[in-house]
Design a protein around this nucleic acid. Structure first.
Lengths: 247, 247
DNA sequence: ATTTTTTAATTTGTCAGACAATTGACGTTT
DNA sequence: AAACGTCAATTGTCTGACAAATTAAAAAAT
């Protein structure tokens, strides 16, 4: 996606975010004029949000901002920080050492964040303790320039909570990959376990409403202290393309 | 999305599906002519696939079909059997030894299935092989009397597929708990790993539409062969009130 | 005053045609 | 063989237009 397209995407995202769910957006010709683009370009940008279920377009009636689905389950469907989760479960947790450093992005991180290699990133690492024992270790990689210095100084909780609290850019969802990894020396030392012991790992991409990755994170969990669940629908896979592609 | 739009979407999906990953799609004017639509409409449809990362567009160079990831990947939102998943991805898998036996329910199983202790259950265990190597081991516990003897005899695939195929009772959803377990002697032997090595485990309750648990299952996955993911919503932030408040 | 009917404006879906900017392949020159 | 210039190809974007149907306003009828 080109820079100009990205900019339009973000400006449109802001307009959508500032519209009450259920409310109608301005008509396309008006919106295009407001954004200074042609109606065709606007429609392409809108298609992105329609694909994500953020807006719904009704021919001859208008385009409406969707109501975010009601959250009932308390599983992985909803993104919440470990801190929020722990306090909800009643697990007394404290934060261990926090490491915040600026460095340049590795190739993998640059690809994940959609930035150039060697672009600056902020690397935040911290452990979650219960009874003086580490039960989770969290690494967040963010593009430089997103979080100010003063924000960083009084950083006490989770990166996610910080981003949610500041409100901009508006967040959309997180893609979370679940896997098991063997503890390397660093992780073994942090958790006080043997090298090679299994750890539950979440690798997550946090997306803004404009589709940009704002946080690339690795979360390691000591088995036995956390229980994650997800409710799975019975039915068809929604993405029809994958079916076609692999037939 | 209107019906005509849906049709274009599907026809474009078919064209993308029949294009080798990494290859270029025909130029937009040609593709539009082939599909019998205008270039503007085609571009809107293409934006849908670009959003999903299925195609990548490079200005003045063309539109390219992306390479799908090589590992077994599954969104957890939709419940599907490992067999269906593997065939959808094109991974050649075979079924290892299958063990089907009738016995009485343990206390844990009785609680999970909502039946009396010592009530009869069917215990189905099987391993999934790829290249003669076990990569998954699945245990299904069902209340007795739900599956007939003749159905069991020619049982070849997954319990879930069997239940879906027979259609009754109608299934609703599955609650899946994700954790990491250490391989015991039995599991270590099955997977050819050391005792104590980490395995990804799903513990799942399959619910019918009437709310009854019809299948209580344990699924063990060898790390590295599967990549499960889940999209986690950021519920509150899309709520425009918060954005306004925090601005 | 209220309900029904008619009318007109609104809005998305779609089309055709055009131009700009840059890439990548090709041919030419050194 | 290498460097350079040329030119077709391709996506990104714009303008203007029409169709179809919904919605709201206006008009008519009760």
């Amino acid at each position: 996606m080109t820079d100009a397209t990205q900019g339009l995407q973000e400006r449109l995202a802001a307009i959508i975010a500032n519209t009450q769910p259920g409310q109608r957006l301005p008509a396309e010709p008006d919106l295009a004029r407001e954004l200074g683009v042609s109606r065709a370009s606007l429609r392409e940008a809108m298609r992105t949000f329609e694909t994500q279920g953020i807006i719904h377009r009704r021919p001859r009636a208008g385009t409406y901002v969707m109501q975010p689905p009601a959250v009932i389950e308390s599983g992985l469907e909803v993104l919440e920080s470990i801190d929020t989760l722990a306090s909800r479960i009643g697990l007394p947790v404290s934060m261990g050492d926090v490491s915040i450093l600026r460095r340049t992005a590795s190739a993998e991180e640059a690809a994940a964040l959609g930035i150039e290699e060697n672009f600056g990133v902020i690397d935040i690492r911290r452990s979650i303790l219960t009874n003086q024992k580490a039960v989770a270790y969290l690494i967040d990689i963010l593009p430089e320039g997103l979080v100010g210095d003063e924000e960083m100084r009084d950083f006490q909780g989770s990166v996610l909570d910080l981003l949610i609290k500041r409100g901009s850019p508006p967040l959309q969802s997180s893609r979370c990959e679940i896997s098991v990894v063997q503890a390397n020396r660093e992780l073994a030392k942090i958790f006080g376990i043997q090298r090679g012991d299994g750890l539950l790992m979440f690798k997550a991409w946090l997306y803004t409403v404009s589709g940009q990755v704002i946080d690339y994170s690795f979360s390691y969990f000591l088995p036995g202290y956390f229980r994650f669940h997800v409710v799975r629908r019975v039915g068809q896979v929604l993405n029809p393309n994958l079916n076609l592609i692999n037939k």
